[in-house]
Design a protein around this nucleic acid. Structure first.
Lengths: 105, 105
DNA sequence: TTTCTTTATCGTATATTTACGATATACGTT
DNA sequence: AACGTATATCGTAAATATACGATAAAGAAA
C-alpha cells in the first residue's frame, strides 16, 4: 500500500494528527484524569483505566507524540501533565474547522 | 486481541468516534469541499482528491457512518452535504473537552 | 550491593485502516 | 433493449493500531 499523506497540506495533516490522538476513549479519559489531578504518575493513570500497564504506556506515548501532554521524569516515576500551549493550539484549529464547516449558529 | 471499547463510557466513546472520523487529512478536505460547494456529487470530490474513486467512496462512507455528512441519491448520482445538526453536536462536545482540559484562556 | 518499585520497550497476536482495481448496481440516454 | 455514467461494494494487500505479557532500565530503599 502507498501512503498518500504527503499529498495533503500541512493544516489538513496537523488537524488529522490531533484528531487521531483523540480517537481512542482511553486517551480521552487520560486527558480528563490529568486535568482532575494536578500531579499524576503513570501508576495513577493505570489504576483508573481498564487496561494493562504496557497498553496505558503506549497510549501515553501517543499523546506525548501529538504534543498534547508531556512527561517529566521524577526519580523512578514519571509525572505527566497537559501541555497547555499545544492544547490551546489544538482548541484553536478545531474551533476554526467547526466554525468554517458548520453553518449553524 | 480483545477490544476494551465497552469498558469506557458513552461520552468518551462518542468523542473518540468523532475524532476518528476527523483523523484523516482526506476527510478534513472533504468537509471543506462540501462547505465550499453547496451541492456536491461524489465525482466533484473525487476530482479534488489525490485518491482513487473507490478510496474516496470509503472515506465518504466513514464520514456518513459518523453522522457528520449525509448523502441523498439523485438519480445515478449522490449529493453529499454536511449534517449541520451532528456537526453542531460535535462542535459542542469538542468545545467542552477543550474547555475542561485546557487551563489556558 | 541486592532488592523493590516504577515505567518504557520488545515481541507478538489480532483487529482495523488505508488504498487500489475490478465488479456490481442503478439510473439515464440512445 | 443496449450502452454510458456515476457510485458503492468486493477482494485483496500492506500499513497501522490495539492489547498483552515479559523484559529491561533506572532510581530508591534495604
Amino acid at each position: 500500500m502507498i501512503q498518500k499523506r504527503e499529498k495533503f497540506n500541512e493544516d489538513e495533516r496537523k488537524l488529522a494528527d490531533i484528531a487521531k490522538a483523540l480517537s481512542h476513549p482511553a486517551r480521552i479519559r487520560i486527558l480528563r484524569i490529568l486535568n482532575n489531578m494536578n500531579i499524576c504518575m503513570t501508576g495513577d493513570i493505570v489504576n483508573q483505566l481498564p487496561l494493562a500497564q504496557s497498553t496505558v504506556s503506549q497510549h501515553l506515548s501517543e499523546l506525548k507524540k501529538s504534543g498534547l501532554i508531556h512527561g517529566e521524569i521524577e526519580g523512578p516515576k514519571v509525572c505527566y501533565c497537559i501541555n497547555n500551549e499545544t492544547m490551546q493550539k489544538a482548541k484553536n484549529i478545531f474551533t476554526q474547522l467547526f466554525n468554517d464547516v458548520c453553518d449553524c449558529k
